[in-house]
Design a protein around this nucleic acid. Sequence first.
DNA 1: GCGGGGATCCTCT
DNA 2: GAGGATCCCCGCT
Length: 210
Amino acid sequence: MSTHSSTVLDPNWFIRPTCVVAADLIGKILCRRVTDTDGQEKVLRMRITETEGYIGLQDTACHTHAGSRTARTEVMYAEGGVFYVYLTYGIHHMLNLVTSVAESPESVLIRAGFLTEDSDRLLNEMDKPPREQLTHHSQFAGPGKLTKRLSVSRDLSGLPIAPETGLWVEDDGCQPPVSLRPRIGIDYAGEAKDWLLRYIWTAHPSLSKP
DNA sequence: GCGGGGATCCTCT
DNA sequence: GAGGATCCCCGCT
């Protein structure tokens, strides 16, 4: 049980420079409304430990590089405060939060986090296979695993980051130490692959990589 | 219409 | 550390 009070981040909170949002999101709580086995609505709460910024036209690792604008990437051109979800490697859904002003197609990828204690117990109870029930689920290291466990998929793309959509972010005042790293999995991106746009909760065990 | 590649993860060695 | 899973997306014809 948390004794801290949390406030919901308004979609307008994301209409700021992408690097600032990506750094500020470390320690915030990603909240997902789910239905448990009894048909009861519950909320899973995952504290964010790792993000990456993708900064639009000049960023060769970004889907909107050089102004590329397709049906998939259209939502990135919206005003900050909506989701951008896409499929990669044919398997994994990637959860992004669109940032900055309209026509500035940038976003923050959520890469890792860990469940609050209450949510960890809830997810264990919801898992059907007995073998899974013994597994400790609290660490969500990697963007594909994270979306799978939180049931995030493409149908959320373009919807607002708000409780009405069932996925939102809360702030309870947590301010962990943050370090910068190069982004993961973008070796093809020329000099942009070395940009320090990956933000991590310093030395946290839930990170996808140190 | 088609072909190649990808902001990953898991398994096997 | 290497490789396969698996399929949407995009660029080209």
